[in-house]
Every structure is written in structure tokens, then in C-alpha cells.
Simulated assay, not measured.
Amino acid sequence: MSDSIVSLRQANIYQGKNLILSDVNFEVQKGEFIYMIGKTGSGKSSLLKTLYGDLYLKEGDGNVAGFNLKDLKWQNIPLLRRNLGIVFQDFRLLTDRNVQENLEFVLKATGWKDKNLMAEKIENVLSKVGLKSKGFKMPYEMSGGEQQRVDIARALLNNPKLIIADEPTGNLDPDTTDEIMQLLFNICRDYQTAFIMATHDYTIIQKYPARVVRIEHGQMKDVTHAGIA
């Protein structure tokens, strides 16, 4: 159990008063890569939001990166999120700042103060994603794949135990998708970072196989690789 990053037991996931998912039992171990599949509106986003504290867990038990979701107070949500990384489909970079300044903004927002340590950390994460010399670039000067690498670098800043990736390849061409998937799997392997990746692209799952969970009809279940279609 000490290697468990996410543990949900008999959890009911709500949006407001609406029950979205019922009796969710879900475990994620250190260094595990998991695909989450399901139709739009099936409840994937609601589950992910519960994991990073955007939705309150009302019923059942939940623990993420050592934080009890049932007892989570609003003032502790930033502490939870320091242990997580979130990668978005649409990058969400600050367009009026260069790459270095985008990453500095996140470090300052999560309590970093020492400029030298921040510069060292930024160089480290940019190196991990293959953008060591691109800190001066503005987002609009970069390709979609480069912007997604910056988004991944941003998610790595606080050495997260878990990265939640919501359709991270949805806006990318096939060759760039391959590059990003190889990068995510390398991070998972080399740093033992757990990943939960929501995707609609089953060709990715065929090419980069890992555990698959499906959300449908208000339920979550593990599915075999052969049963995802």
C-alpha cells in the first residue's frame, strides 16, 4: 500500500447534486501508466477533477498522494496540487510571457522564492523534455508539439507523484503524438511518476499499451487491451 498514489474505495462522484459515477474502486501505483477511456460526458473529467480537488468527494473513501479527499479543506488544495502535475490538451500557456517566465510563474505560485534555485529547476525540466535551449521563446513562436512539451515541463516542476494528462495529444499530428507519448512513457519509467491519461485515441493505446480503465454508464471498470474497441 505504501506505493499507492491514488486509492478510491466505494467512491461516489458528484457534480453538484448530480451523481455522475457510483461505487468507484480505483488504485494507482507509483510509476504506473493508466489510460482512461469513455465517451464525452461519461464522467472522465469529473473523476479527474475529484482527484485534484476541484470537486469534493462526498461519499466513499479517497486518498491522493497522501491527502485524504474526504477531509480536504480548501486551503490544503494547493498543497495537494503541488504533488500533482496536470497536462492539458490546449496547453494553457501564458501568451504574453516566454517559456522561462511561464515556468517561473508556476514556481512562484507554489511557494518558490530563491531565484537561483528556480533557474536551476527550470533548466532541469526543460532538459527533461528536450527544450533546454528554448527558454527565451514565446509560445506563439513554437510548434504545437513544443508547446505541449512546455506544458509537460510545467507539470514536472514540483516533482509530482502523479501526472494527470487530459487528452494531451488531441491537437497534435501523428508524428508529434508519437514524440509526446515516448516522452510521457520515459518520464513514467525514469522517474517512477504515475500517469493517468484520458484519451479518445485508441490507436495510441494499441501502439503504447498500458492498463486501461473505461468509464461508461456511471461506472468505472478495468478492461482488457482487447476489449477497448
Rank of each mutant, 00 (worst) to 15 (best):
C188M: 04
I180R: 10
E179V: 14
A194F: 14
L162W: 09
T177I: 05
E123Y: 06
K108F: 05
E146G: 12
R97K: 15
C188Q: 15
K161T: 13
E104I: 03
T176L: 12
N171P: 09
A155Q: 01
I152P: 00
Q192G: 00
P168D: 09
M118P: 12
A153F: 08
Y191L: 14
R189D: 10
I152S: 00
D90N: 15
E101T: 10
D114V: 12
V129E: 15
L162N: 05
Y208A: 11
K128Y: 08
V125M: 05
R154G: 01
D151Y: 00
K134A: 02
I164C: 10
T199N: 05
Q100P: 01
D90K: 03
I164L: 12
D190S: 13
K207C: 11
F185S: 10
N186K: 15
N186Y: 14
L183S: 09
L94Y: 03
V87I: 15
K137V: 09
N159M: 05
N171G: 15
R149I: 00
D90H: 04
D166I: 11
W112A: 12
A165T: 11
L126N: 08
K113E: 07
N102D: 06
L157S: 14
M142K: 03
I86V: 13
D175I: 15
R92L: 02
M138Y: 12
W112F: 10
A198V: 15
F195W: 09
L93T: 05
Y202G: 02
V106D: 00
E179P: 09
G145I: 05
N186Q: 15
D166A: 01
N98L: 04
L93P: 05
L157G: 11
V129F: 14
S127Q: 14
A119D: 15
D190C: 04
P160N: 10
T169P: 07
I122V: 08
L126P: 09
L107K: 03
N98K: 04
G135L: 02
T177R: 11
D190L: 08
K132M: 13
D96R: 11
T203G: 06
D173M: 02
T199K: 07
L156Q: 04
A194V: 13
N186M: 14
L103W: 12
S143H: 14
V99L: 04
D201C: 07
V99H: 00
A198E: 02
I180A: 13
I122D: 06
D175L: 08
T177C: 13
T176C: 08
N171T: 10
R149S: 07
I86P: 02
A109H: 06
R189F: 04
H200L: 06
T177E: 12
Q148H: 02
E167T: 00
V106R: 01
A194M: 11
T169E: 02
V99D: 00
L126V: 10
R154M: 07
A119Q: 10
Q192P: 07
L156A: 00
I152K: 00
D175P: 03
T199H: 14
V99P: 09
W112P: 02
T95K: 05
N171W: 12
T176R: 09
I164Y: 04
I187Q: 12
P174K: 09
